[in-house]
Design a protein around this nucleic acid. Structure first.
Lengths: 339, 339
DNA sequence: TACTTGGGCGCAATCGTTTGTAGTATCGTT
DNA sequence: AACGATACTACAAACGATTGCGCCCAAGTA
């Protein structure tokens, strides 16, 4: 019921041809039609509550006014803010957001992207890429602009919005150093991810920068960004280096895993051994003790990605740049001066 | 580049008219065309990698093969699983998911819904309704089926997929009673939400059921489902009833808030006073002590909502039913026998 | 043989827009 | 008064599919 009012209705109401109505309604072509007529059409449109049919328009203009957002795992709290940030800017420009969940592995992610391309999304935001990934070129084949978020490719000229891992680790290391820590260890993320590598490198670099010993021995890699692998790594690290007074973890969960390893040795988190996390996921402030963590502006990251994508879709052929957003440090109870 | 192969191309390749090709490709009409021809067309389509243009199809059939999902706050970890669950079943049927974030208040939620209707979504999943809400009728005006999820209306015949609050609170109360607790309190959610009310009622009912005293005095309402209001409520409750040995909280954050109030009194969580949460959000197992919580199958909730919506969109005029999914209990360290 | 029946297919309209082109006033110019 | 230029506006063809209708031809019946 309540049959959609079409452009034809507006045209009839305004006493003009539908093509004239179309031009009058479109800001970029309304200059070619008589101002009085424009007024009349606009009035009619308003009176009838006219809304253009997105499908019809899309069919003609080859635009769907929608962008696809592909997420490796919707259930990861990290991606909520990214989605929210992107949505908030896309919605302003009249775009809708198709979200795809690629939680069934890498090949699944590719079919998700393929589906979206088939639906003629005008652009893509990918949070799923691994270091060598065919998806962006897949999209390029369809002339669909792509922006990467959170992770990036090894060396492809695809615009990406990332957290500044170097700066972030710097915040943690400098914070610990300023508290007086000199023996600091690192629980690294898996080296198959760009973040795992970058944070490890940053750690070494900042340690040297602070005049501290940067022995590769004080770094232990967790097999995955989860608590269990983190515990294994922390355990090994503390076995090898019982003299450590602080640990910089590449991820919040890895940081929390350190709690367990530290307590298993009868030591106290924050007083005997300080710990920092990375990402600042929710609820960290309710931990015992609350976990000091590097905070990434994920919401802003999503917004920035959307803004960049909008530019690309508008045809701005600016050189694809990688933007690194500045992190901050949420200081809490898990860090303190060494005994 | 790589110009999309259209139905016309397939028809030419197969040596038939485009209308015949269309019928051959469509399972529901392929019976009227010669099996040999169908085979030929299918072959041509496969060879050319034909994919129907969703916009063109939608324009003609008035279907977009997309459903809108409106969420009050994407950043709430609760909604990740709901989205994931819905997506997993929708994607099977070829539907895409448009997600809308209504984090700027109720009126914003309405414009989000309006936007989606304008885009001609084939159905809507709403997680945003308040007890009296105009959105469903708005959608009904456009003949768009709606399914509610997580929350429901006061008394409108709209299908809804909910957690079974009565059963959930029952799990918590029975668990505590079986541990030997007899003086149990309740931190209720705001009575402006359907869940706040339902859980409070369920608490009273189960207490009586267990033969325990169900004094309205042992219930304290938190102003909102957050830690701070929860702390205020827990504080008041423990002031009034220092004899309580257990607290059932209407929400995980309220449960965690109890930790603080309990410790502020020099007591110990899990031994002196047991606490249960509700929802089972991530990371609860890393708390000190880990929070025992009623677990809602949110992912299944999303999946169920999508399945119901699919039925409605298919025209199954089954009586709109409210489905309540059975919760379970994740028993952890925050509950134990009373001293 | 003529006539009906119906299976299989093509024709063309349609969905609601956008947009290239052609047409028609109106105006100023000579 | 006749002309071209200017400024609007209408016409119609797309976009890529679906679908009611009618045509054609082969098979079945009398």
């Amino acid at each position: 019921m309540a049959d959609r009012t079409t452009l034809k209705d507006v045209a009839r109401e305004a006493g003009v041809h539908v093509s004239t109505a179309s031009r009058a309604l479109n800001p970029s072509t309304s200059s070619v039609v008589n101002p009085d007529t424009v007024e009349r059409v606009l009035g009619a449109a308003r009176r009838l509550g006219y809304r253009p049919h997105p499908l019809a328009r899309g069919l003609r203009t080859n635009q769907t006014m929608s962008v696809g957002v592909v997420i490796p795992d919707v259930e990861n709290p990290l991606f909520g803010p990214i989605i929210a940030g992107a949505e908030s800017v896309l919605v302003e420009e009249g775009y809708s957001m198709l979200i795809g969940n690629a939680d069934r592995g890498q090949s699944h992610a590719e079919t998700v992207v393929a589906d979206m391309l088939e639906r003629h999304v005008d652009g893509l935001i990918l949070a799923t890429v691994i270091r060598k990934d065919p998806q962006p070129s897949l999209a390029a084949g369809h002339n669909v602009p792509v922006v990467l978020v959170n992770r990036t490719l090894d060396n492809d000229p695809v615009p990406a919005i990332l957290g500044d891992d170097h700066a972030g680790i710097g915040l943690a290391v400098k914070h610990l150093a300023s508290l007086g820590h000199r023996r600091i260890g690192h629980i690294a993320g898996p080296s198959s991810t760009s973040t795992g590598l970058a944070r490890r490198d940053a750690f070494m670099s900042w340690m040297r920068n602070e005049g501290l010993e940067a022995d590769p021995e004080v770094v232990e890699e967790a097999e995955w960004y989860q608590v269990e692998p983190g515990y294994v790594a922390a355990d090994a690290l503390l076995d090898r280096h019982p003299e450590l007074t602080a640990i910089v973890a590449a991820n919040d969960l890895l940081g929390l895993a350190c709690y367990r390893a530290i307590r298993a040795r009868g030591k106290d988190v924050g007083t005997d051994i300080s710990v920092t996390g990375y990402n600042d996921i929710p609820l960290l402030d309710l931990m015992q003790p609350p976990l000091t963590a590097v905070r990434i502006p994920y919401r802003q990251m999503g917004a920035q990605a959307a803004a960049t994508l909008l530019k690309l879709m508008a045809g701005d052929a600016e050189p694809p740049a990688t933007i690194r957003l500045a992190p901050s440090l949420a200081v809490r109870g898990s860090t303190g001066s060494p005994r």
